[in-house]
């Protein structure tokens, strides 16, 4: 991916998420939703690192970005949220329960971690170099079966990549108020898992770390763990006003926004052209979904 493609993908996620939030606030969508504004970097990186024809990818409630990156068809995500038959899960799953080929999401925090380890068990016995990847947040780091998954993956030696998107909050609960630390290095290393930590702001660095982890899982057939420090600029769900996030944290992340980092590597004219292209695509998606 060149920087233009990276920026296009990041912005497509962000503008689609903003569109989805706006449709919810207008009362045009049913149920709830969990957007990933600010957390676009991991989905964009995985869009080229995961081979949907053989690899498996699982995630949880905050997976719009991954969904759009895996399908390449935002219509099937927005359509799903709108309950359309052409949605990813034929309108049955809504925002949280979707699938496409070997990509699956579910609405229970951390619940896909043991499932992904089981998929990795199957992939190991299949032979070949396919891998299983699961993406979850810091809230999931306190679900018992997520920790059980780390132990099983390492003790059974399974080809699974754990990606923790640490956005600092389990819904509204600040990470430091329910954990003895703000990063999970000690906990992860306690399971003897190879651990790397990276900030989402520098996409090239994030991409390099994830690529390295993917390649290791692919070739060594054993687990890897990457903790990605990131930030959510939107509420946990549609009704969340983010009263618990201090201004200084937002300020820091506006300075370290992954979108801003990539845009800085392009000329203002290039960025403007990409913004226009994305705006047009989002409008096309929206028009398709309201007319089909």
């Amino acid at each position: 991916m060149d920087n233009k493609e990276i920026l296009y993908k990041m912005l497509l996620i962000r503008r689609m998420e903003q569109k989805i939030e706006s449709l919810f606030s207008q009362g045009l969508l049913r149920g709830t939703t969990h957007c990933c504004i600010g957390e676009e970097a991991v989905p964009v990186a995985l869009s080229v690192l995961i081979d949907m024809d053989k690899d498996y990818l699982c995630s949880g409630h905050r997976a719009h970005g991954l969904s759009m990156m895996m399908t390449g068809k935002p219509e099937t995500l927005l359509g799903e949220i709108m309950g359309k038959p052409y949605g990813m899960a034929k309108g049955l799953g809504g925002s949280q329960h979707v699938y496409y080929k070997n990509y699956f999401t579910n609405g229970i925090t951390g619940g896909m971690a043991p499932v992904t380890v089981g998929i990795a068990f199957a992939l190991k016995h299949d032979g070949g170099d396919a891998i299983a990847t699961v993406v979850f947040g810091d809230g999931a780091m306190n679900e018992g079966y997520v920790l059980e998954s780390f132990n099983m993956a390492q003790s059974m030696g399974l080809p699974v990549l754990f990606i923790l998107e640490n956005n600092g909050y389990a819904m509204s609960t600040p990470i430091e108020t329910v954990n003895p630390y703000t990063v999970f290095e000690d906990r992860v290393k306690g399971f003897a898992l190879p651990y790397q930590r990276v900030e989402a702001s520098d996409f090239d660095n994030l991409f390099a770390v994830l690529k390295d982890a993917v390649e290791k899982v692919r070739t060594e057939r054993t687990p890897q763990f990457v903790e990605v420090m990131t930030h959510r600029f939107c509420g946990h769900s549609k009704s969340d006003k983010r009263a618990y996030i201090p201004q200084e944290r937002d300020d820091y992340w506006h300075e370290h926004d992954c979108v801003k980092g990539v845009a800085a590597k392009l000329t203002p004219a290039e960025v403007e052209a990409i913004e226009a292209e994305v705006a047009q695509r989002v409008e096309e998606v929206y028009q398709y979904c309201v007319t089909h």
Binding site: A113, P114, G118, G144, E148, M152
Partner: peptide
């Protein structure tokens, strides 16, 4: 390991694959 939730989930993942 003595992880009923975990190894049942492992079974679910195997079945999914």
């Amino acid at each position: 390991p003595m992880s009923e939730q975990g190894f049942t989930g492992l079974g679910v993942g195997m079945a999914l694959a």
